[in-house]
Write a protein that binds this DNA or RNA. Structure first.
Lengths: 206, 206, 206, 206
DNA sequence: AATGAATGAGAATTCATTCAT
DNA sequence: AATGAATGAATTCTCATTCAT
């Protein structure tokens, strides 16, 4: 494992660019299969086929099938985390509600772009023994929220910031995912965003 | 042909006590495997083994592997739904907060008894095409909440009851599940219940 | 001891009748399944179900699944053989052609009543190692034909009676079976009977 | 979904020499098992084992077990059809009897090379619902015979050519098969060929 | 590096047969 | 005798992974 990682780093520049491209092609193919054919269809052969490479090549870049999901998780986590951090940074004095709405809308856009993928990632996160990666990511998000809450003006009234951040993050995420997949009749996208924004604001504000 | 296929999914519906017991033994074995060995370990042979019956017997009661999950889902759904309905019935004039806390605590007990099972069921609910059963259950729960909200004294201030009920249910469920599986450091059970109760009450009351 | 045996014999009569009836019920159920659902559907459970008895009872009368087929074969063989012998006996001086036609028509009626059954029996007869029963039956039929040919007036011109009888029997049987199952367009039942009669007569007469 | 199912049955059609060779190895192994161990012994694992490949490889070339039989059928059909067409072409003015004998002898050689295989194929042809392939083949053979009969000099006296061709083909085929498998005592190969030739000639000529 | 044929462990499912009641 | 629940060996098929070219 360590050897593989070290060897990888030694590779040269042009190769790295091409490698990077192949990796992306494979990840994109996987996402496309998730969305179009369902998670069960994402076999290594099918991924390779859709990506336009051979299985052998696929294994050149990913030690095993799970590594593809891991990479996908990393990529999506990165997007979510950077979105959160950017939004929560609160550039100019936006109102609490405006910030909350921005976060909710941003996450919603992210999830809606690939609901099946996020479903799989959520499921993965629900493993009996969650990968450290998942816990690390959650901790990072929760940390960002916590920091935000901590630095917020006296408006935040929560005392247990850990619990509050955890509750807010999981609640919003799950409601969105369930909405995108179940498509419950009688609830519009706009209504969902409104309600979630309100949920967060009321929960956090004093 | 179609007749046979349909018949297959039904199988002997057990009316004898013996049969009922065997069904329970199989369901319990499945839950035990989920909790102890993870969902992937729940193969038909392993379930039969743990249940102390033969594969043949297993298939005498369940037309195929998925039928076991379906039965488990039915069982758990029934428990959750009856809990909700019982609690929301609001026997004597309990306060909103008291009712909310009762629901949260009840669900929490239910999930804590078999987190991995509920994870699987949630995952099942996150299928790209959720079974009608799942949607029916969600609709039932959301309906119960909606009815409660509709009949609540003027204290409820939500206008979009559909969206509100959906948001409340999914949020609470997901946060609990994530908590039970990730076991985030720094958040106690009591704190979680407190926070979720508060989340619900603040979201709904005015 | 003697008393018990005597008692047994006294009870036997009605029991034997009942046993005989059960056996028939099982055989008939099997034929019905062959014709209506196909040979693959004829599992022991399905046979018992259609016969209205339990599997246990089925095994009371037939040592194993193949024994059912054997009995069916015996029954059908008996019908075919008695038909042949009756017809070939040539009561009054019927013409060769009339006799041939009678045999062809008799067999055709027999096969048409249960084509799928006769297909299975034929297939069984085509086993790499045919059961002695099959060879015995074929020998019996061929023997009957041979005897008939031998005693025919000078009209029969075949020298190798064994080969001739074998050829006649197999040819007629197979053509009929293929006809009943393939239902070739452009060939009517009447035409088939005519042609087969002519085939036989021309082959045998001088 | 349907797309995937369709794709399954096709699989990699082998164009490389290597692939072609593997396909042949598998088909030959199947025939060998039929002849030596009986049709029931031809499980996918046993075929793979005798072929000296893994089950996985077998499924790389044949979408399912039946596809192997189909391929075998195609191969044998091709041989039989080309034999018939070649022989019936009647190059120079061979006599009717000579042509008939050539056909009978040719078919006999074909069947004798793998009687159990041809038994299975005949059985397959006797399916309650024969595959279109079987009907197509039979139609092709019967068509070739019919064409031959139609173009024969005034010697052919049959009026219903469809029925005649059908009767001739099925009769000869079945008698041969029964002979090869039952090995009836008292009938030599030479006698069988003689008798069948005579059967055909007498039936058709006038 | 890339390829894709080959591998084989493992999963779901069926069904003839047994045996306690 | 009759019942039918229970058995488990056997079968088909899948798919992650390897490795010779």
């Amino acid at each position: 494992m360590a050897r593989r990682a070290a060897e990888k780093l030694r590779r040269n520049q042009p190769h790295q660019a091409r490698s990077r491209a192949t990796v992306e092609v494979i990840l994109d193919a996987t996402v496309r299969i998730f969305e179009g054919e369902g998670a069960d269809a994402a076999t290594t052969s099918r991924i390779a086929e859709v990506a336009g490479v051979s299985v052998g090549t696929l294994y050149q870049y990913f030690g095993n099938r799970d590594a593809i999901l891991d990479a996908l998780q990393d990529r999506e986590f990165e997007r979510a985390a950077s979105l959160m951090q950017r939004t929560l940074a609160n550039p100019d004095g936006a109102s609490d509600r405006a910030i909350a709405r921005a976060v909710v809308e941003g996450l919603f856009r992210l999830y809606r772009a690939a609901p099946a993928l996020h479903r799989v990632l959520a499921v993965d996160g629900l493993r009996v023994t969650p990968a450290e990666r998942v816990q690390a990511f959650d901790a990072r998000i929760v940390g960002a929220i916590k920091t935000f809450l901590a630095h917020a003006k006296p408006r935040i009234r929560r005392s247990d910031l850990d619990a509050a951040a955890f509750v807010v993050y999981q609640s919003v995420r799950a409601a969105m995912l369930a909405y995108l997949i179940e498509q419950p009749p009688g609830v519009s996208e706009a209504a969902l965003v409104d309600e979630l924004t309100d949920l967060v604001v009321r929960y956090l504000s004093e």
